[in-house]
């Protein structure tokens, strides 16, 4: 039993903001630091974590069989070939949703906590039963959002629910940031989002085409030698989770030259 195991829910409320991609990349990045990490796909309805990790063809058993005790936990865990410190516990059949209870997720999470230092739970979108089950298993949470009004509003809803469940700490990851639009004030600034949601910022990820390329291949960016902005962002988040003091990137300063400086002056808050 590892008493220091961190069980972290990765959630967002809104779908399609990058929960699963973050889970996959964080899993690899933590594994690379030599940390025993497991990613748990709690999205039983629409599972995809296996696909993003390139492990879809290696699944034999799932969380369903583990809960039914028709297989041992280590039989269901799929170890990542290129990153042996990372394992995946795949989601079971969507029909599991009919009987799955919060206690079931808690049982799985505590089984995983005995073997791993980090348990990352990929939460389903929405705030219905699937979400509630996943929350029950988590101690802390990372809320992923994009700088869009709908994603921020949904994140706020989720944060409220996490607070009532006593999940703490809750940290924010701002995904799909477009520096140019932010500099032109045509996109909510990181400060705006953290002020509104009143959460500390764990990381900021730039919109990056390489993310799509890496999903196509089933190789998370953190696994490749990519030095793309998102790859750096994911690696930095993993380091911050480990307590390292890595300065946050300032998207407004991404631009160079006089024009960028002028924009910066224009968006300084004066009162």
């Amino acid at each position: 039993m590892a008493p220091t195991t961190r069980t972290i829910l990765i959630c967002s409320g809104k779908g399609g903001v990058g929960k699963t991609t973050l889970t996959a990349n964080l899993g690899i990045a933590l594994g690379r630091q030599g940390i025993r990490t497991v990613v748990l796909d709690a999205d039983f309805g629409l599972r995809n974590l296996d696909l993003l990790l390139g492990l879809e063809n290696r699944i034999v058993y799932t969380a369903q069989e583990v809960l039914a005790e028709s297989c041992r936990l280590d039989q269901a865990l799929v170890k990542h070939k290129q990153e042996p410190n990372l394992a995946l516990l795949p989601a079971g059949n969507p029909r599991m949703l009919e009987w799955l209870k919060p206690e079931d997720m808690q049982r799985i999470a505590s089984m995983l906590a005995e073997q791993f230092d980090y348990v990352l739970i990929d939460c389903p979108a929405g705030i219905e039963d699937g979400f509630k089950n996943a929350v029950a298993a988590a101690k802390e949470a990372i809320v992923v959002t994009t700088p869009e009004v709908s994603a921020v509003r949904d994140a706020d809803r989720v944060i409220g629910l996490l607070n009532t469940q006593g999940v703490s700490p809750i940290q924010l990851v701002l995904n799909r940031v477009r520096p140019k639009m932010m500099a032109n004030q045509e996109m909510l600034a990181a400060d705006d989002v953290t002020d509104i949601l009143a959460l500390p910022l764990l990381g900021l990820l730039l919109e990056d085409e390489q993310v799509i390329v890496s999903t196509n291949r089933g190789e998370p960016l953190t696994l490749t030698k990519s030095n793309s902005p998102a790859a750096r962002g994911y690696a930095n988040i993993a380091r911050r989770l480990q307590g390292e003091d890595v300065p946050l990137m300032d998207p407004a300063k991404e631009g160079r030259g006089l024009r960028a400086k002028l924009w910066q002056l224009m968006q300084t808050k004066i009162f």
């Binding site: 932010m182 004030q185 045509e186 909510l188 600034a189």
Partner: peptide, 9 residues
């Protein structure tokens, strides 16, 4: 538009 977004939110 970011200002409008902030106020609406």
């Amino acid at each position: 538009s970011a200002t409008t977004a902030r106020e609406r939110l």
